[in-house]
Design a protein around this nucleic acid. Sequence first.
DNA 1: AAGAATTGCGTAATGCTATAACATTTGCCA
DNA 2: TGGCAAATGTTATAGCATTACGCAATTCTT
Lengths: 133, 133
Amino acid sequence: MTTAIAALTKNQALVFETLARAKTPMSAYTILDQLRDNGFRAPLQVYRALDKLLDAGLIHRLESMNAFVACSHEQCHTAGLIAFAICENCGQVSEFADAAVSRHLTDWARDHKFNVAKTTIEIRGACNTCANA
Amino acid sequence: MTTAIAALTKNQALVFETLARAKTPMSAYTILDQLRDNGFRAPLQVYRALDKLLDAGLIHRLESMNAFVACSHEQCHTAGLIAFAICENCGQVSEFADAAVSRHLTDWARDHKFNVAKTTIEIRGACNTCANA
DNA sequence: AAGAATTGCGTAATGCTATAACATTTGCCA
DNA sequence: TGGCAAATGTTATAGCATTACGCAATTCTT
């Protein structure tokens, strides 16, 4: 077995590296623009790579802003539910796993016989730095 | 003082009634199509009404599917954080407020000096009925 | 190694979601 | 009744995502 990153194709690696460098969320079209020089010409080339990277747990999709970020945990796919705090001013994203929150939502699902596929938790607001500026 | 619903304008009322009848989430464009006979001609007419209804707490936006639902609580805007369980098969949405979840996320924000504007919690999956079918 | 199956890639076209910009109308109330 | 604020109507445009098709590369099997 090889590591997940070694298994990436050329396009997938290019998209992942672009996101990893950015540190803040990027839209698919922004990624596309940055990869024009690498031969990217159509949105689908980006979306296909993003799909695979999402499957591999290397990146996350932020539903509330139609954008994507590289995962900031080494082994985040092993963690359970992940939440995001997104600064609407500087774009900084904090990724965290809260076991208590995860447990309560799991309990709710069990009590209501709801079969969970995926859970999204996104906090929008201002980070400490921006709130004080 | 009048009730919130009495203060709605014609367009706002039309959009709200459309959502309330539907019981499942609708996109802005689906709403538009259903209101063509009522004189609606452009997306903006829908989006403007949706904005006001969101402000009034009469409807909710589901970030993970770019759609809107009528609020299912009488006085839900008085409740704190609201979470949604969305069945990806039948579209049914369950709206619930979990105090413990809310408290843990608030605690995280306080500990990290993050100034919360809005929080989104959306569970995607299969409802009990659909999971058994 | 040949053939089949799977996966990835390139391109064009299209569809869905949301807002900008500007003119006009409506309702309120001072 | 004049003036302001909010709501409306219309056109155009920006931004996000997928469908459809054909080809190329890779892997699996025999």
